[in-house]
């Protein structure tokens, strides 16, 4: 599957160049010219990695990074002209995974992106056991429990729960859930709400835990309470 990279940079020349370089290496590229457009594109398309310029306009890259980090753990690579160490520390504190200082070689940037994505997919492939706040899911044995009580879930309910717990800090869009759990779905997307409601009911009945918080107009996040 082709990885998607979102490039957020207000410099048209750099945004285009980074797009060409990533495209040539086989990535699907989305781009946004400012912070608000970048945040919107992130929620709409759920990219696999974000290349983010720190020196954006009104909403700077650090603020964009904080907003993305509030809802997900997608890797973020900062582009910056600020080579001073203090800026790097601020960038990493805001949640950046890597840092490329301008001027830069597009080949180097593409190599960094590739390394981060390979590392991420290797971690994802190896990990089959997930625990968040009393909820335990093992995707290899397809078992789940809440506060120690085993959950009797249908295939669909289990797949929904697995996708949420694999991305515990991320809002998963309805489209992403439909694609992962149902494959190509051409029917009513309220099917997600119906199965999510059943899943919530089973988890609550077994343990009192609440899972599957709806994020209005977007989708769901795990949100164990």
């Amino acid at each position: 599957m082709t990885d998607t990279v979102l490039v957020i940079d207000d410099d048209d020349d750099l945004r285009e160049l980074v797009g060409v370089a990533l495209n040539e290496s086989g990535y699907r590229v989305l781009s946004a010219p400012d912070g608000p457009a970048g945040v919107a594109a992130y929620h709409a398309h759920q990219p696999d990695l974000v290349v983010l310029d720190i020196g954006l306009g009104a909403m700077d890259g650090l603020e964009v990074c904080r907003q993305l980090r509030a809802t997900g753990n997608t890797p973020i690579v900062f582009l910056t002209s600020r080579a001073e160490e203090v800026d790097q520390l601020v960038g990493f504190a805001a949640g950046a995974d890597d840092y490329v200082t301008k001027p830069f070689s597009p080949r180097l940037l593409v190599a960094r992106v590739g390394t981060i994505l390979r590392r991420g997919s290797a971690e994802q492939e190896e990990k089959t056991h997930f625990e968040v706040g009393g909820l335990v899911v093992d995707t290899s044995s397809r078992t789940a429990s809440a506060e120690g009580v085993e959950l009797d879930l249908t295939r669909t309910e289990f797949d929904l729960l697995a996708m949420l717990i694999e991305n515990p800090r991320r809002v998963i869009t309805r489209d992403a859930l439909l694609e992962r759990v149902w494959g190509s779905w051409y029917g009513d997307d309220h099917v997600v709400e119906v199965h999510m409601s059943r899943l919530r009911g089973k988890v609550k009945a077994a343990s009192g835990l609440r899972v599957g918080v709806a994020v209005r107009g977007v989708g769901y996040k795990l949100g164990v309470e």
Binding site: D11, S81, P103, F104, S105
Partner: peptide, 11 residues
């Protein structure tokens, strides 16, 4: 100048 320096160098 901050922005342009980075762009020109990258090109």
């Amino acid at each position: 100048t901050h922005r342009l320096s980075g762009t020109l160098g990258t090109y």
